[in-house]
């Protein structure tokens, strides 16, 4: 996992919200903004493009669409503003 850099302020907020909402067994938040520098929606200070991998028992029994919707709902504020692109891998511990 290329989870090396410390969280920026946006990633920290994302981590706090997802941790509170889902008590995940695993949570990786990767800022991929550098890969998109100069693209539409990219910001000079980064933290615009994220990839999130989250594993939580809270997602048991839910369809893929419903899992993503739960995560998107928790991050609605960020998705409406700061986040330009979000790639999600949402699983339950049995998968």
């Amino acid at each position: 996992m290329p989870q090396t850099a410390p969280d920026g302020p946006v990633a920290s907020a994302i981590r706090a919200k997802l941790t509170a909402a889902f008590a995940p067994q695993r949570l990786a938040i990767v800022d991929e903004s550098r890969l998109h520098a100069g693209h539409a929606g990219a910001r000079e200070d980064g933290e615009s493009h994220f990839r999130i991998e989250i594993v939580s028992a809270a997602f048991r029994g839910l369809s893929r669409v419903e899992r993503h919707r739960r995560v998107n709902a928790v991050l609605a504020e960020e998705l409406a503003g700061r986040i330009h692109a979000l790639s999600l891998d949402v699983r339950d511990p049995d998968a």
Partner: peptide, 17 residues
């Protein structure tokens, strides 16, 4: 009820992004 594009529909059913 999906905040991002793209969105795929098949026979009227939302499949995902």
């Amino acid at each position: 009820n999906w905040p991002t594009i793209p969105q795929l529909y098949v026979k009227g059913e939302f499949v995902g992004g």
